[in-house]
C-alpha cells in the first residue's frame, strides 16, 4: 500500500526526490508557520488586533487559518493521508469537519447569548 508515496506538495509545485526529503521539507514548512504564529502572538500588531472581519479580530482569523494549514500537512504528510484512497480521506475529513463546524457554531452562539443576558438581562451571576 504505502510503498509508493505521492511526493508532491503544494498542489505539485514542490516535488521531492524521496520520502525522507519530503518529511524534512514538511518539517521546515511547519516550523515556518509556527514561527509566524509565535511572532504574531508576541508582538500582536495593532492593525491586526483592531481590524474586525466577520465579528472576529483579523489576528485570530490568521491564527485559526494557519492552524488548519498545519493540521492539513500533519494529516496529509505525517499521517500519510496523501497516499490513502479518496474514500478514506473523505470518510475521515468530511465527518470531522462537518460535525465540528456544527458543534462549534451552535455552542458559540449559545455562549454569546448568555453573555448578552449577563449584559442586558436581569440575571447577574446566577449560574
Amino acid at each position: 500500500m504505502a510503498q509508493e508515496h505521492n511526493l508532491a506538495i503544494f498542489r505539485g509545485t514542490v516535488k521531492f526526490k524521496n520520502n525522507v526529503q519530503k518529511i524534512w521539507g514538511v518539517l521546515i514548512f511547519l516550523s515556518i508557520v509556527t514561527t509566524i504564529e509565535v511572532i504574531l502572538g508576541i508582538f500582536k500588531p495593532d492593525f491586526l488586533v483592531h481590524t474586525n472581519f466577520l465579528h472576529m479580530k483579523l489576528l485570530n482569523w490568521i491564527f485559526i487559518i494557519l492552524t488548519l494549514v498545519k493540521a492539513y500537512y500533519i494529516t496529509w504528510d505525517f499521517m500519510h493521508m496523501r497516499d490513502e484512497k479518496g474514500s478514506l480521506k473523505k470518510a475521515v475529513v468530511w465527518t470531522s469537519v462537518f460535525l465540528i463546524l456544527y458543534l462549534t457554531a451552535l455552542i458559540l452562539i449559545e455562549g454569546n447569548y448568555i453573555y448578552d443576558v449577563y449584559q442586558d438581562g436581569f440575571i447577574k451571576w446566577d449560574f
Binding site: 478514506l88 465527518t95 470531522s96 465540528i100 454569546n112 448568555i114 453573555y115
Partner: peptide, 26 residues
C-alpha cells in the same frame, strides 16, 4: 483511524466548551 476520529471529536467537545465559557465571560 476510527479511534482517531472519535478522539478528535472528544477533543473538539472540550475545546468548544472552553469557547463556550470564554464567550460567556468574554
Amino acid at each position: 483511524w476510527f479511534f482517531i476520529l472519535s478522539d478528535a471529536l472528544t477533543f473538539s467537545g472540550f475545546l468548544v466548551s472552553y469557547g463556550f465559557s470564554r464567550f460567556k465571560f468574554l
